[in-house]
């Protein structure tokens, strides 16, 4: 049984904008799945349809075997949603928000208070439980939405850009929290613009562009397709531009070189050649995240095909 089984979902908004052009995809139970795509690709529309916030035009979705039309309430009970934008009452304190949300899922107040304490403590918000939510920082508000989504202990957690605008320390804490949740058996679907986040956390990946699913595979096999990789070398100012017959070298500025390598080429060879030409390397890094290079490639390919 799939955690989520999406068949030929289409969405045409009033005015004729075709946001989704027949997307089909399955996410396995227990998976950590990345759903990527440029802005306006249709990711949030798809998430909106799964979580009943957007009416679909056609197609079928089932969540843990429950049909989203005929067994809507059972399906909803399985899903926890962390939306992209803050959508809680900014005048209510976190504790009240969580307890109310649990109540909507039929959880008794006594049990809701226990769960709220657990999640607020886990997400480091317990000290702010009675403070109006509008006074929380951006990172705290994001964590509050995660806590709220977990109150009914869903089997499927959908996070729409949960780390947007969050500093790196909070982001890393959230990554650890989500990884732990996934280990406990919660299926997670994540959309993000931080591709290193997707690469680090997710096992499988889908890429949506212009309402179509252009890729749906495992992270490993996608990264294996990377044929070239670009490195940035910080060097002492060379007296001349080094050259090589094995790889291309581009001088970015006086002390920076950009070198593109094929997948089967060794970095040892680069160091050897640079050293032989009297270039001293001070440091080295990837030009872009590996997934980012693939993502841009796939999306650009999609644009050319349109």
């Amino acid at each position: 049984m799939y955690a989520i089984d999406i068949k030929d979902i289409k969405k045409i908004y009033k005015g004729g904008v075709e946001a989704l052009k027949g997307i089909s995809l399955q996410v396995k139970k227990g998976d950590f799945y990345a759903l990527l795509g440029p802005n306006g690709a249709g990711k949030s529309t798809l998430i909106g349809i799964i979580s009943s916030l957007v009416n679909k035009t056609s197609g079928k979705i089932s969540v843990f075997g429950y049909d989203l039309e005929s067994q809507l309430e059972q399906a909803k009970a399985k899903i926890g949603l962390v939306p992209q934008e803050f959508n809680f009452n900014q005048f209510e304190p976190p504790l009240q928000i969580l307890v109310n949300q649990a109540g909507y899922y039929g959880i008794k107040r006594q049990e809701a208070l226990i769960r709220a304490e657990k999640y607020l403590k886990q997400l480091d918000l317990w000290g702010k439980r009675d403070q109006p939510s509008r006074e929380l920082s951006g990172g705290m508000k994001r964590r509050l939405m995660i806590a709220r989504a977990l109150m009914h202990e869903p089997c499927l957690l959908i996070l729409d850009e949960p780390t947007a605008g969050v500093d790196i320390e909070v982001r890393r804490t959230m990554w650890a929290f989500l990884t732990e949740l996934n280990k406990q058996g919660v299926t997670i679907i994540l959309t993000t613009h931080y591709l290193e986040e997707a690469e680090m956390l997710c096992r499988n990946i889908g890429i949506i562009d212009k309402g179509c699913l252009v890729e749906n595979t495992s992270m490993k096999s996608l990264l294996a397709r990377l044929e070239t990789e670009t490195f940035i070398f910080d060097v002492d100012p060379p007296t001349h531009l080094p050259s090589s017959e094995f790889f291309s070298i581009k001088q970015v500025d006086e002390v920076t070189l950009e070198i593109e390598l094929d997948k089967n080429q060794s970095l040892n060879k680069v160091f050897a050649e640079l050293s032989a030409q009297g270039v001293r390397v001070n440091s080295m890094r990837n030009k872009a995240n590996r997934l980012e290079e693939l993502f841009i490639g796939l999306v650009e390919k999609g644009s050319k095909n349109v």
Binding site: S52, N87, N100, Q101, Y104, R148, H152
Partner: peptide, 18 residues
């Protein structure tokens, strides 16, 4: 209307509440 405006009506719409 405030719940619509602040979008916290979504808390109810995603929940299994008829």
């Amino acid at each position: 209307f405030s719940a619509k405006f602040q979008r916290n009506v979504e808390e109810l719409l995603v929940a299994p509440v008829p």
